[in-house]
Computed example of a mutant assay.
Amino acid sequence: MVTPEKPLSDGEDVDGELTVDQLAARVGVTVRNLRAYSARGLLPPPRMVGRTGYYGREHVARLLLVREMLAEGYSLAMIERTLASAPANASSTTLALHRALLAPWLPPEPETMTGAEIAARAGVPEDSSLVDRLPELGLVERLGDGVLRVLDPALLAAGLQVVRLGIPPDSLIDAQTRVNEHVREIAQTYVQMFVRTGWQAFVDAGAPRDQLDTMRDTVARLQPAAAQAVLAAFRTEMAAAVGAALETALSRLEEE
């Protein structure tokens, strides 16, 4: 039987390696939950010696972050997406920074539905060829038995609104594919701007803990500011494009 230990605070670290029981006790979670987190890929694999797994500092760091995010109301699915691109051996400081920079940009929780349900929401007949194109956009993943995981429900909802206006779904998918390419460029532009300015200074200073809150606040403010800037520019360009198209169309009517 393992003697319960005092749970680690966010600033503490672990010396040596721990068994699964010791790790659970050290961080303050149950072994059952720890195994559930491992099954979801929230923890890197332990070092195996025979049939016994041994856990180190990187596992403690991950569990501390999972515990913190759960306390803040994040679902396991959101935590899984947040940690998916984090280094397996990241320290608690690195993980906290990774979470602070990435979490504000993640889309809403994924939803599951069928192609028939998507068609019904759009008000169009079910068409398997259209559903087959949705993974091209990175919008859905197939789960089997006709069930789809919608990775960005907000984007799907916006697309369905356009389809309900009478735009053919195929035409919308073609247009959205091109839009995604331009949005990817815009995202890279903002990220590189951030890297060259605040991020580089933070790294050059050795990523001090006392500046982490400032970095987190900067990213939290950058997200809505960037979105507003893109929307404002889009409105201006959309007005110009609509005006030019109307001028051409009206000129043709006058000629006829």
Rank of each mutant, 00 (worst) to 15 (best):
V131F: 03
R133E: 15
R133N: 13
L134E: 14
P135W: 06
P135L: 02
E136N: 15
L137N: 09
L137E: 10
G138V: 02
V140K: 07
E141M: 01
E141Y: 03
E141K: 12
G144T: 08
D145A: 11
G146C: 12
G146Q: 15
V147G: 07
L148Q: 15
L148D: 15
L148I: 11
L148Y: 15
L151H: 01
D152K: 06
A154E: 05
L156S: 01
L156P: 01
L156R: 00
A157W: 01
A158R: 02
G159K: 02
G159F: 11
L160I: 03
Q161H: 08
Q161C: 04
V163C: 06
L165S: 13
G166Q: 02
P168H: 10
P168N: 08
P169D: 00
D170H: 00
S171E: 06
L172Q: 06
D174V: 10
D174L: 07
D174T: 09
A175H: 07
A175L: 12
T177C: 00
R178I: 05
R178H: 09
N180M: 12
E181I: 11
H182D: 07
R184L: 07
R184Y: 01
R184C: 07
I186W: 07
Q188S: 08
Q188N: 06
T189R: 13
Y190D: 00
Q192R: 12
Q192D: 15
M193Q: 15
F194T: 13
F194C: 11
